[in-house]
Measured scan of single mutants.
Amino acid sequence: SSYVCVECNFLTKRYDALSEHNLKYHPGEENFKLTMVKRNNQTIFEQTIN
């Protein structure tokens, strides 16, 4: 599966890399929402900020 930060167009295969991205680029933000999307037999988790 892949993880994408929709706000930044940041894409990674690792959830911990997304967490690091959030700490660096969205410090103090807590209203993240992950949406699971299936595309071409791949699972993509799209992160948006509410």
Rank of each mutant, 00 (worst) to 15 (best):
S1R: 01
S1W: 04
S1M: 02
S1F: 01
S2K: 07
S2V: 02
S2A: 04
S2Y: 07
S2I: 11
S2C: 03
Y3H: 06
Y3R: 02
Y3Q: 02
Y3A: 02
Y3K: 00
V4P: 01
V4R: 12
V4A: 10
V4C: 11
V4K: 05
C5R: 00
C5K: 01
C5H: 00
C5Y: 01
V6C: 09
E7V: 09
E7P: 10
E7D: 11
E7K: 14
C8N: 00
C8G: 01
C8F: 00
N9Q: 12
N9E: 04
N9D: 06
N9L: 09
F10P: 00
F10D: 02
F10A: 02
F10I: 13
F10T: 09
F10R: 06
L11Q: 15
L11M: 12
L11W: 13
T12A: 08
T12E: 13
T12K: 02
T12Y: 03
T12S: 04
K13R: 07
K13S: 14
R14E: 14
R14L: 15
R14A: 15
R14V: 15
R14H: 12
R14C: 12
Y15H: 02
Y15L: 06
Y15M: 13
Y15V: 03
Y15Q: 15
D16I: 06
D16H: 05
D16K: 14
D16F: 14
D16Y: 05
D16Q: 12
A17R: 08
A17S: 14
A17C: 15
A17D: 15
A17P: 04
L18T: 01
L18N: 02
L18M: 10
L18H: 04
L18G: 01
L18V: 05
L18R: 01
S19K: 12
S19A: 03
S19Y: 06
S19N: 13
S19G: 11
S19F: 04
S19M: 11
E20R: 06
E20W: 01
E20L: 07
E20P: 06
E20Q: 10
E20M: 04
H21G: 00
H21W: 00
N22K: 02
N22I: 02
N22Q: 02
N22W: 00
N22P: 02
L23M: 06
L23P: 01
L23D: 15
L23C: 06
L23A: 06
L23E: 03
L23W: 12
L23V: 13
L23T: 07
L23H: 08
K24A: 12
Y25L: 13
Y25H: 14
Y25S: 13
H26D: 01
H26Y: 00
H26A: 00
H26S: 00
H26K: 00
P27Y: 06
P27S: 10
P27R: 11
P27D: 04
P27H: 07
P27K: 15
P27A: 07
G28E: 14
G28M: 14
G28N: 04
G28P: 04
E29M: 08
E29K: 11
E29S: 11
E29Y: 03
E30Y: 12
E30Q: 15
E30R: 09
E30K: 15
N31W: 02
N31F: 03
N31L: 04
N31R: 07
N31A: 06
F32R: 05
F32D: 06
F32A: 10
F32G: 05
F32H: 06
K33T: 03
K33R: 08
L34K: 10
L34Q: 13
L34C: 03
L34W: 05
L34M: 09
L34E: 14
T35K: 14
T35L: 08
T35A: 10
T35C: 09
T35Y: 01
T35W: 06
T35Q: 12
T35S: 12
T35H: 05
M36W: 05
M36E: 15
M36R: 12
M36D: 14
M36F: 08
M36Q: 14
V37K: 10
V37T: 06
V37P: 01
V37I: 12
K38M: 06
K38G: 08
K38W: 03
K38Y: 07
R39D: 13
R39H: 14
R39P: 09
R39N: 04
R39K: 14
R39Q: 12
R39L: 04
R39W: 02
N40I: 05
N40E: 10
N41H: 10
N41T: 07
N41Q: 12
N41G: 08
N41D: 12
N41M: 07
Q42W: 05
Q42E: 13
Q42S: 13
Q42N: 14
Q42T: 10
T43R: 07
T43W: 10
T43P: 14
T43F: 10
T43Y: 12
I44A: 10
I44P: 01
I44Q: 04
I44W: 07
I44N: 07
I44H: 07
F45S: 14
F45H: 15
F45W: 14
F45E: 12
F45K: 12
E46S: 06
E46P: 01
E46C: 01
Q47N: 03
Q47G: 02
Q47R: 02
Q47F: 02
T48N: 06
T48E: 07
T48I: 06
T48F: 06
T48H: 06
I49T: 09
I49W: 11
I49A: 11
I49L: 09
N50S: 09
N50E: 04
N50T: 03
